[in-house]
């Protein structure tokens, strides 16, 4: 299985199903995206659009047995140069990759850290596991890692417990934990959403610095478009479980092709326009993600929808490094 992909991670037409009491649901049904080494790709979309499910599927962390990958590929290029499909990789192999080559940072650092172990012990454990270091040298490495993520007094703070730290510090510990084995891919699921802006800025700058130094690829999940503009090289937009548009951050913000992308950008308070009565109003998207028919998922809320939009499924059209899932984008843009 050696496919020639220049990307580090290449997700192709991913579909994920969950078994629930009300029958099967498909929260992800057409995700195509790629991350190259040294690149930051932002995955954006409204709550419930399937961002986290996509990242969990990539890490092989879908809740079992309810969730499963039911279609598509998740190709990952290992350090050895070999490309594997994470969707079908046996669990032991996947476990070996996790932490060693792919690492993840979650939104709530408190729940992903063990409350009864010091942060140093937790990092040391991961280092021991993946790098085979002894106890003392692993602890030393842990202190180095805390230093790397700019935690002041790292030597002293390896002995602290998670609850003794602020939210921002805990997120730094999570990042240190993720970085401890030099991953080539970092998946960050809303790592700054729970933080204050000044702390968020620190974490964003930190992630960017580490990425430059280590040269890893980053898949950065967020719903904050400001953060996207700040950190991303490329952006992938999701709506109702599908990727609807991908492009470089500059092009996507300047000339969005998908009506959802442009509507989303116009929702930003900073893009409010002055109405005729002198008030500044933001545009909004009417309604909410409801039941998805067989046509374009955005059709019920799309200002540009025509009958043809609801006829059948809309394919992701790729052209150079941009892709868009809309029948009428050329007409609309013209």
């Amino acid at each position: 299985m050696n496919m020639d992909t220049p990307s580090l991670l290449s997700i192709q037409d991913l579909e994920v199903r969950f078994r629930t009491e009300d029958g099967e649901v498909t929260p992800v049904r057409g995700v195509t995206l790629s991350v190259s080494p040294g690149e930051t790709v932002a995955l954006v979309g409204e709550s419930g659009s399937g961002k986290s499910v996509t990242s969990l599927a990539t890490m092989g962390l879908l809740p079992r047995p309810a969730g499963r990958v039911s279609g598509g590929k998740i190709l990952f290029r290992q350090r050895s140069g070999q490309t594997v499909d994470l969707a079908t990789l046996p669990l032991p192999d996947l476990r070996r990759l996790r932490g060693a080559e792919i690492a993840m940072v979650f939104q709530e650092p408190m729940t992903s850290l063990n409350p009864v172990l010091t942060v140093g012990e937790q990092i040391a454990e991961s280092v021991r596991l993946h790098m085979g270091l002894g106890h003392a040298s692993a602890l030393k490495r842990a202190a180095e890692m805390l230093d790397l993520v700019e935690i002041p007094n790292a030597r002293r703070r390896v002995h602290e417990y998670p609850h003794q730290m602020s939210g921002g510090m805990r997120q730094r510990v999570m990042i240190a934990l993720a970085m401890s084995c030099n991953p080539s891919l970092l998946i960050a699921d809303e790592p700054t959403t729970a933080l204050d802006v000044t702390i968020q800025a620190q974490i964003l700058v930190l992630i960017q610095r580490l990425q430059r130094e280590i040269g890893m690829g980053v898949l950065f999940i967020t719903h904050n478009l400001g953060v996207v503009a700040e950190i991303a090289d490329r952006v992938t937009v999701m709506y109702a479980g599908q990727v609807v548009e991908t492009g470089s951050v500059g092009e996507l913000f300047r000339t969005p092709r998908h009506p959802y992308t442009s509507a989303l950008l116009n929702c930003l308070p900073a893009r409010a326009r002055r109405g005729e009565d002198g008030r500044r109003v933001v545009q909004s998207i009417p309604g909410s993600i409801g039941k998805v028919g067989n046509g374009c998922a955005f059709a019920p809320r799309c200002g540009q929808a025509t009958d043809s939009c609801q006829a059948g499924s809309v394919l992701l059209e790729t052209e150079m490094d941009r892709s868009v899932r809309c029948l009428r984008w050329r007409e609309i843009l013209a």
Partner: peptide, 9 residues
């Protein structure tokens, strides 16, 4: 200064 602007430029 810390509030990210939704503008890549």
């Amino acid at each position: 200064a810390a509030s990210p602007k939704a503008d890549p430029d």
